[in-house]
């Protein structure tokens, strides 16, 4: 991969603590245009928390965020969206009582010349983008609480790609999807990548990760164990990073790498 110019996003020495728990501790990771970086780690490693700092959901205690090499001020989700950062949250973050189109456009509604909601135009766009993701989806008039888990996930994905994101964060986007829909999301990732969008992908499926990601970044107990290009490491080595925190030779160690006793 060519790397001209500064990274699209750079998270530098990010830390955040909840009460006594250091959910993210001095973590650094970067992302280039057209690149997929997978964030890996066991449950509670701090992956979601780290990306929520980037998406403006949490305020970091320390560290720096740079977008296109310039320091970015991200204090809330609106700021992040202004930088073209779109997020598919692990919890999906859908308003259950309104329909798919209302969710897709939540916070960015289309309005008519009179300033009123243009529901038909929103439904039209919703039908188009959902057709791309899940062509069999037809329940546009119903509140999303009545949809299946996978349909809800499709709505959350559609929302993230609707607004021409430059940086896409996907926190376990296929956890509830069937095989066909998962494959469709895989295709989508490749397509977005080709469009030059940078993607942070959080997943527990190591095969998916090796299929889609250019680099992996492994976290353990809030710290980065190491970062590696997928062609430089094997699946077993990555599993070793996740489970033991052991950094293989092909990876760049981070602060969380197990210190190998000099022998």
């Amino acid at each position: 991969m060519e790397r001209k110019g500064p990274p699209l996003v750079e998270l530098k020495n990010i830390s955040i603590a909840f009460g006594g728990i250091r959910a993210v501790d001095d973590a650094s990771v970067d992302l280039y245009p057209g690149e997929v970086v997978a964030l890996l780690g066991h449950n509670g490693a701090g992956k979601s928390t780290l990306i929520k700092i980037l998406s403006g959901a949490y305020k970091r205690d320390a560290g720096e965020i740079r977008v296109n090499g310039e320091e970015a001020t991200i204090a809330n989700p609106r700021d992040a969206k202004a930088y073209g950062i779109e997020t598919i949250y692990q919890t999906l973050a859908l308003a259950d009582n309104v329909d798919a189109a209302a969710n897709l456009f939540l916070g960015r509604e289309l309005v008519t010349a009179w300033g009123t909601l243009d529901d038909v135009a929103m439904e039209d766009q919703a039908r188009k983008v959902m057709g791309r993701l899940n062509p069999r989806f037809v329940r546009f008039k119903e509140p999303v609480v009545k949809l299946s888990g996978g349909q809800r996930q499709s709505v959350a994905i559609a929302r993230a790609i609707l607004f021409n994101a430059r940086i896409l964060i996907m926190d376990e986007p296929t956890a509830a999807l069937g095989p066909q829909e998962t494959a469709q999301v895989g295709e989508l990732v490749k397509q977005l990548k080709a469009d030059g969008i940078g993607i942070f992908l959080i997943s527990h499926d190591i095969h998916d990760v090796f299929d889609l990601a250019d680099r992996v970044c492994v976290m353990k107990n809030g710290q980065v164990v190491g970062t590696a290009r997928t062609e430089d490491v094997t699946k077993d080595e990555v599993l070793g990073m996740i489970i033991l925190g052991k950094c293989p030779p092909g990876a760049t160690p981070g602060p969380g790498a197990m210190v190998v006793a000099a022998a």
Partner: peptide, 18 residues
């Protein structure tokens, strides 16, 4: 729309930038 979205899921509404 925001009133109803907040009622349905306050956290989601906040994450949507409301």
């Amino acid at each position: 729309r925001y009133v109803f979205a907040i009622g349905g899921n306050p956290e989601a509404a906040a994450l949507a930038g409301i």
